[in-house]
Amino acid sequence: MTKQSHENDVAFIQALAELLNRNELTEIAVVREYGEDDSLEVRVVKQATVIAAPAPVYAAPAAAPLAAAPAATPAAAAAEADPASLPGAVTSPMVGTAYLSPEPGASAFVKVGDTVKEGQTLMIVEAMKTMNHIPAPHSGTVKRILVEDGMPVEYGSALMIVE
């Protein structure tokens, strides 16, 4: 790669970052083809800062009896809020569409209760017309599948739990 093409690539990436900010996008991905065996794949992601607003408080009618709800532990509440924080969570390495089977009408790669080996394909995430196999990070049992076939997924979102 020449110095000139490197400088052009840097300018291209900077332009993508500016486009991201100017249009209030959180992510942009582009593949730039230079020739048959030469390309540049760029993915620019902006981390959004999320500020949680307090939940509104509603008063129960005076005549309605209050049922005692079981107290949830903070760890259980956090796990319900973010499945990606659960032990054994398999997260998406990219933004795309999740597919549970290799092709429409075929049986799923795995189902709940299946034992999987490290590296075994769990599902496919299609991004930019490329089918990316998602391997099991470790051996274990599929405890939960958190996505549906054909569902869009975000980077870092939990796909399934393998323990």
Rank of each mutant, 00 (worst) to 15 (best):
V90P: 09
Y155S: 08
A79I: 07
T130H: 03
V90E: 10
R43P: 03
D114H: 03
A158L: 02
P56F: 04
T26A: 15
Q4R: 10
E33A: 10
T121L: 00
A59F: 10
S92M: 09
Y58W: 08
A71L: 09
A52V: 07
G105Q: 08
A78P: 05
I145Y: 00
R32Q: 13
L100R: 00
R43E: 13
T97F: 09
P137H: 02
M160P: 05
E41K: 13
M128Q: 14
A72Q: 10
T2N: 13
E7R: 11
P102Y: 03
M123L: 15
T97H: 05
P93W: 08
T141F: 02
A98G: 05
G140F: 08
E154F: 04
G156M: 00
P65R: 07
T130A: 12
S157C: 09
A77L: 14
K143Q: 15
I28V: 15
V95Q: 05
G35S: 10
A75C: 02
R22N: 13
P74V: 07
A29Y: 05
I145M: 04
A77Y: 04
R144G: 06
K46E: 09
V142R: 02
Y34F: 13
V125A: 01
G88K: 05
L100A: 12
V42F: 10
P65Q: 08
S139L: 02
G35L: 10
K117W: 01
V142W: 03
D82S: 09
L19M: 14
N132G: 11
E118S: 15
K129T: 08
P83T: 04
K143C: 01
T141D: 06
D38F: 06
A69E: 14
Q120C: 03
S101T: 15
G140C: 12
A48L: 12
